[in-house]
Design a binder for these strands. Structure first.
Length: 230
DNA sequence: GCGACAG
DNA sequence: ATCTTGTCGC
């Protein structure tokens, strides 16, 4: 079955920006979720089949201490919004909500692909998902988008401020020695220091968090299963 | 106006 | 995101 779009979901860019402006003040920057390495952590990701206007979302719950998979869920929906830089949430969140709703386990901390407060209006995908669900969330992106940062050490754990002008909106964080950093930011109910700690706890072997890697694989597989049996 | 621009 | 071959290295 196909996940629908939430009531009142914006249809155009102006309406979408208005939604961001209306919700941005609800973001909580304090650490009120599970501590790094405790409870559960859930990876979220989405894959597209533009030709058929379909989107598959995946949610993978891991035990934060062992990184073992506790539960997996997927949801399929229609593409709800075009890709517009700064409005990614409107494209991905409807299907993601479907996958989260299918879980029986408490998601704990939700790790998103993309940004939270590191956003032109300080309300990226991770923050938006957090405010909508009330869950603690954080963003881990592969690219710095339009933000700037100075150089950082080559060792895993090195970090430097990700800036929008003079404001620190996130961090560039090295998760593997000598490998390109990831770009992390607060989503909801986490602190920036906490985001870095959680990210390092999720990257014992690869540049990207285990949550992201598992969710990425699952939503791609879900899309393939869909092609095999339309 | 032009280019850049999370996924 | 997605389209795609080989290739260097542990």
């Amino acid at each position: 079955m196909i996940t629908g779009v939430p009531e009142g979901w914006p249809t155009d860019e102006a309406a979408a920006r208005a939604v961001q402006d209306a919700l941005r003040d609800r973001v909580v920057r304090d650490e009120t979720g599970p501590a790094p390495g405790t409870g559960t952590v859930t990876g979220i990701d989405v894959a597209y089949d533009d030709a058929r206007d379909l989107v598959a979302a995946a949610a993978v719950v891991l035990d934060a201490a062992t990184l073992d998979v506790v539960e997996e869920a997927t949801a399929v929906g229609r593409v709800a919004f075009p890709y517009v830089p700064g409005l990614l949430a409107f494209r991905e969140i409807p299907a993601v909500l479907g996958a989260l709703k299918a879980l029986r386990t408490d998601p704990g901390l939700v790790v998103c692909d993309g940004y939270g407060l590191a956003h032109p209006r300080r309300f990226g995908l991770a923050s938006h998902l957090g405010v909508l669900t009330g869950l603690p969330t954080m963003g881990v992106a592969k690219n710095p988008f339009a933000f700037e940062h100075g150089s950082l050490g080559q060792e895993r754990g090195s970090a430097v401020a990700l800036r929008d002008g003079d404001e620190e909106v996130g961090r560039a964080l090295r998760t593997r020695d000598g490998v390109k950093p990831v770009y992390v930011s607060v989503g909801h109910r986490v602190s920036l220091a906490g985001v870095c700690a959680h990210t390092l706890a999720l990257t014992p072997a690869y540049r990207l968090p285990e949550t992201t890697r598992r969710a990425d694989r699952l939503c791609r597989d879900a899309l393939i299963d869909l092609s095999a049996r339309p």
